[in-house]
C-alpha cells in the first residue's frame, strides 16, 4: 500500500475508534440520566420502587393543596382520574400551578408512598396540558373502560374515572 494512503487509513481508523468510544460512553451516560414518566395509577399499583428518580404527573386534585404553617413546604395530590398520588414539595411553585391544572413533578417516592418532588413544572399556557399528563388521563380512561366491560356492563350509569373525592 502507498505510504500516504496507509497514513490516511490509520487516521481514519483512529477517528472511527475515537468516535465509537465517544458514542458508547455517551449512550451509557444517557441511560443513566433519563427520567421515566409514571402515571399516578402506575405509582399506586406499586410499579415504582422508592428512591428512583422519575417524573410523575396528573391533574392537581381540587382542595388537596395544603401549605405548611412555616416555610415553603406544600403537599397536594395529583390524579389521572383513576388513582391519586400525594406529592410533597419544598419551594416556589410555578405560576400556573393551580388546582385542576395538569402538572409534572420530578422526584422520588419515599417509603411512606409520598412523592418527594425536587421540581414542579406547569407550562405557561392555560390551554396546554403536559403531553405526559394527557397520556396518563387517556390511559386511565381506557383502563376504566376495560374494567367496566369486564364487569359485564351491568351498570352502564357508572361515570368514567372515579373523579377525585369532590
Amino acid at each position: 500500500m502507498h505510504p500516504q494512503r496507509k497514513k490516511r487509513l490509520r487516521l481514519i481508523l483512529f477517528l472511527v475508534i475515537a468516535v465509537g468510544a465517544a458514542v458508547g460512553l455517551a449512550m451509557y451516560s444517557l441511560s443513566q440520566n433519563i427520567n421515566l414518566f409514571q402515571t399516578p395509577t402506575q405509582i399506586a399499583n406499586g410499579e415504582v420502587p422508592p428512591g428512583r428518580t422519575i417524573r410523575a404527573g396528573g391533574l392537581v386534585v381540587e382542595g388537596s393543596v395544603v401549605r405548611d404553617k412555616e416555610g415553603l413546604g406544600v403537599t397536594f395530590r395529583v390524579t389521572d382520574g383513576q388513582s391519586e398520588v400525594p406529592i410533597h414539595y419544598e419551594g416556589i411553585l410555578p405560576d400556573l400551578f393551580r388546582e385542576g391544572q395538569g402538572i409534572v413533578a420530578l422526584g422520588q417516592l419515599d417509603n411512606s408512598g409520598v412523592f418527594e418532588a425536587s421540581e414542579v413544572l406547569a407550562k405557561h399556557d392555560e390551554n396546554y396540558m403536559p403531553p405526559e399528563v394527557q397520556d396518563a388521563l387517556e390511559k386511565a380512561h381506557l383502563d376504566g373502560k376495560a374494567k367496566m366491560e369486564n364487569a359485564n356492563s351491568s351498570d352502564t350509569d357508572t361515570s368514567y374515572g372515579k373523579g377525585a373525592g369532590y
Partner: peptide, 14 residues
C-alpha cells in the same frame, strides 16, 4: 366551575 364534568369527559383544555 370545578371542572368535575370536564374531568369525567377527559377534557384536557377548552
Amino acid at each position: 366551575p370545578k371542572g368535575k364534568l370536564g374531568l369525567e369527559l377527559g377534557v384536557y383544555g377548552a
